[in-house]
Design a binder for these strands. Structure first.
Lengths: 128, 128
DNA sequence: TATCTGTTATATTATAAATATAACAGATGA
DNA sequence: TCATCTGTTATATTTATAATATAACAGATA
């Protein structure tokens, strides 16, 4: 599981970390039960602060992607990520709606939009 | 064009403003050439600061949604919003990818995802 | 000339992001 | 037993962004 950061990006570091772990799970590069680096070692590897990693891990835990055992360490949720519930759908709608509004303004057809989503979907479901 | 703000939201006020103007254009509630309230009057109406409105307007101008005439005021771009270009597609991909990654983790099928997008698309394209 | 535009400048407050140390408690292995 | 590894908590500081508060300027208009 390689993690790369863009320190110039406007996207906060802890958010980049979260997204890459989630992408890793989606791509099956990370399996249920698989261990993740400790907050200290990952922070050292990436050259960032322990608390930045901890913030990302805490949120991933809160959202059900990982489990944190106080003395054992961090593992990908062995039971798998919790299925989509009402709260999830609601949040997803809030996040996608502005993107679709802009797409409509720019004359992007529903077919073109879905084609892009389909390509991204394929990129995650393919092994590797 | 009614604008409502959620001051409790984590989404910055200027971002909420931007999204609502873009949604208004997508829904045809705002037509090309139509005037928008001045920075001062909109700020007063919403009970927020002039600069917060100005920040939203400046970014909307930068992205081609509106034009600002120094003494005339603010209008929806009379030539329509610029079509999707390479930069747009690139940014859209960056924004959607994390959402699709999480969807895959939560066992949301591509069909379910596209169904949601389709519903949101319909909400914008329908006259209302 | 008073009033309306957007614009610019400066300063301040509040919050979030990131870092810097330090310490604690439980588990593990030498 | 002891050093070492875990996550966790606490405190403080720095940096950046968001939002506000005034103030002033320049051009257009009625």
């Amino acid at each position: 599981m390689y993690i790369t950061l863009d320190l110039e990006s406007e996207e906060p570091i802890y958010t980049q970390l979260k997204h890459q772990v989630i992408a890793g799970i989606a791509k099956k590069e990370l399996s249920p039960g698989e261990a993740l680096p400790s907050v200290r070692s990952l922070a050292a590897d990436l050259g960032i602060n322990l608390h930045t990693v901890n913030k990302a891990y805490q949120q991933l835990k809160q959202e059900g992607f990982i489990l944190i055992h106080r003395q054992k360490g961090v593992v990908v949720n062995p039971d798998g990520v919790p299925k989509a519930d009402e709260g999830y759908w609601s949040e997803l709608t809030s996040k996608i709606s502005p993107l679709i509004a802009e797409a409509v303004c720019r004359d992007v057809s529903e077919e073109e939009f879905q084609k892009l989503c389909s390509q991204i979907y394929a990129g995650f479901q393919t092994k590797e």
